[in-house]
Design a protein around this nucleic acid. Structure first.
Lengths: 354, 354
DNA sequence: ATGAAAGCGCTAACAG
DNA sequence: CTGTTAGCGCTTTCAT
């Protein structure tokens, strides 16, 4: 009924506990004969070494456990990222603890505390807002941390992000090149770093042409599908409504697409060309984007690359790399399908220069 | 530089180690004065209790760690499920280890071994094929296990699945009701339980009408997007091609949709009504399904319900429930959009009886 | 090649 | 209320 220990195995094999330890650790200097005896006892009892007890004594190798802390594990972007981190960890014989923060600093702290209390060797974190000085003690105690998706305030550590600003700029430039000038910005909470960056990119695209965005077309703080829909309804009611939309994450893109579909009614004639009432370009790719009518143009990031880069960074730190913190910025890609175009309009500039 | 221990805190606070232990554990019977002294020392040193060491001694409460083992964490279904399990765990002060098996029995074993070696209190597992007798020793040692998505061969434990067979039957019945009779089945590996069930449901729908499926229209073993595309091309080349498709998971659905889109070319006239060359009903909902043309009809399962049900089952086992293993079967829902219909055809039977 | 003793960081079980 | 002793399951160090 109880879990067998090395002591039990030793007794069963008629050797000392220390010999069992050696066999289980593949340590040299045990007679083949004894090894066989012990291994048989191990199998007979179904013995498995207690890794936690081992780590308590032998801290040279760490716990072979890392923690991954994301906003929301269910978000496809983070799910893909977590999976690629998990693959890297598995290759190295590590296990991974995961936790979602929901973007709540308090929950982030709880999760991280629970992880460090279990002596993780390192942490890959999507930081929420606010100072991350609370990580200092853990880091001094030897826990390595790598930030992903956004930098942590007040913490100079390895960080892997994508060039959000550049990606947004490309998206909006694409819309401008296709003759749109009244382009709305629909974004999530402005206090989230990625959203600030994307908004800055939106503005950049206008200034690069000597234009400026109309503040009346800017909506920040859209937290849900529903809020995105509401924002769209609001924009359409304007005396001079936008002709194009830049949506700064997948949830918002989904919301406005849905809203357009509904507003027009299920029986709306779907003419060839461009059945949507407005052009749309969104941040983040979606599985069926290509099959929409018109196919959806998006800025896509590569979550697998983000994850594996972060994991590699973390594992080299764990392996002893003490060089200066690295800031890796990955590129996004504008996937031009058709939702950003205007039927019959000839773009005046290539959307993706060089 | 090194991690402070209780001993360090005791020294800093001028009390015994045991007193620190009491304060850190909120044990009663320590003078408010001493508590304050200790708490200050804790803060000053940035002390955090080593949970692994604690668990070594105090096994009454377990390790407050559970393991979640899925096919592929990046799969939206499992990501959602994992997230809902994580929420339940967090509520109870537990952390969760995750691992992907890739449907490989060997990797499943490695992952599970790594988890049990860390003394997890319980495991939520999406079992791969093959006998799971190897879990017996761990279970006897007190590790509780709950299976999700599919039952484990040779292991009588709590299991949470959805009624795959019923879901598939509904989907195909819907197609039959809309006048289709040449309905192809495109499925993943037949050795996966869910796929066998779904195929059985496909057959059921025919026999319920006194019909039988044409074996020439059945394709098993489609492992990827690409293979699904190939299978579709193959079916279309048949002398008497199908008029409708039942696709038995999201990856396959995506593949055939994509293939149809390409085959018809980007310039295909998108007439109102039903621009797809064949009707399609798929297992698993997709985020943009509603916005396709025609909107995609799917069988949807609720991953969040699956996850929270499994988590609740597991935590009651951990809390001491020793009743007989439960088999929970959740229902699917046929989300009727339009891709399963035939323009102008009047269904001869309600697709969802009662 | 094998074993005995000490101790990792903590808590249970007793003292005072 | 506080401290002492033992020991969780294992590895280190030092014998033999």
């Amino acid at each position: 009924m109880k879990r067998p220990t090395m002591k039990d195995v030793a007794q069963a094999a008629g050797v000392s506990l220390m010999t069992v330890s050696r066999v289980v650790s593949n340590a040299p200097g045990v007679s083949p004969d004894t090894v066989a005896k012990v291994e048989q006892a191990v199998r007979r009892l179904g013995y498995q070494r207690n890794v936690n007890a081992r780590n308590l004594r032998q801290k040279r190798l760490g716990t072979s456990t890392i923690g991954v802390v994301v906003d929301d594990l269910a978000n496809p972007f983070y799910a893909l990222m977590a999976r690629s981190i998990e693959d890297e960890a598995h290759r190295r014989g590590c296990v991974v603890l995961v936790g979602s923060t929901n973007d709540e600093p308090r929950r982030e702290r709880e999760v991280i505390a629970a992880f460090t209390a279990r002596q993780v060797d390192g942490l890959i974190v999507v930081p929420t807002i606010g100072s991350h000085g609370f990580l200092r003690p853990a880091m001094e105690a030897g826990t390595h941390v790598v930030c992903v998706d956004r930098p942590a305030e007040g913490l100079d550590v390895d960080t892997v992000t994508v060039d959000n600003r550049d990606g947004a700029r490309h998206a909006v430039t694409h819309l401008l090149a296709h003759g749109h000038s009244r382009i709305a910005y629909l974004g999530d909470r402005y206090d989230i770093w990625t959203q600030r960056e994307r908004y800055a990119g939106y503005l950049d695209a206008f200034s690069a042409r000597g234009l400026s965005a109309d503040p009346a077309l800017v909506r920040h703080g859209l937290r849900s599908h529903l809020e995105a829909r509401l924002a769209l309804a609001d924009l359409r009611a304007l005396p001079d409504p936008p002709t194009a939309l830049f949506t700064s994450n997948d949830l918002i893109t989904l919301g406005v697409l849905d809203a357009m579909d509904d507003l027009d009614g299920p029986e709306r004639p779907r003419a060839a060309g461009h059945p949507l009432p407005m052009a749309v370009v969104g941040f983040d790719d979606l599985p069926l984007a290509k099959l929409l009518d018109p196919p959806l143009t998006v800025v896509s990031q590569d979550p697998v690359a983000v994850g594996s880069t972060a994991a590699n960074l973390l594992f080299s730190r764990i392996a002893g790399d003490r060089s200066a913190p690295r800031k890796v910025i990955l590129l996004t890609r504008l996937v031009e399908r058709r939702s950003g175009e205007r039927p019959g309009h000839r773009p005046d500039l290539p959307a993706t220069p060089s």
